[in-house]
Amino acid sequence: MKISLTGAVFGAVMASAVYAGEVLPTAVAFTDGAVEQSLSGMPGDAANGRLIVGDKKKGNCVACHQVSDLADVPFQGEIGPPLDGAGERWSEAELRGIVANAKIMFEDSMMPSFYKTEGFIRPGKAYTGKAADDTFGPLLGAQQIEDVVAYLTTLKE
């Protein structure tokens, strides 16, 4: 399901950071674990996605995955499979589904769900150890997911 806000005037007075064409975390449509539609309504930026994947404060995907293309990022984890060649193994829609909520593609996966806002047990306020408050949002924003997906599609062996 797509959230479409009609008219730029209406969009401009919205308090929340929901942009025209953005799919809310609660409204993502999965088909066999894949998501066809861009979550932001925009194409992704692979160069920015590359930064997000390697950045401890953003995707921190390298906490669990090795990526040869990110040889400059030290200390890559080995919890999940190396992401080399992910763009060959998976379609763009599958990659979007995996990054948005990997537990739909891989049952009980240890991989966190990066575009999800509900159904957590004792969610916290980031890494403070305190309870979540009204600043709670998905781990990555819609455009960040698109950027990561765009980067992953470039990973060919």
């Binding site: 890559q76 919890i79 537990k103 966190p112 004792r122 709670f136 781990l139």
Partner: peptide, 25 residues
């Protein structure tokens, strides 16, 4: 065995299923 928090990780995810592995550094 309960997966808590926004990362939905249990003690077992890290210390039973993945001991010996590197998680980042």
């Amino acid at each position: 065995y309960t997966r808590t928090g926004q990362l939905e990780l249990s003690c077992a995810n890290c210390h039973e299923d993945n001991y010996g592995n590197m998680i980042r550094a």
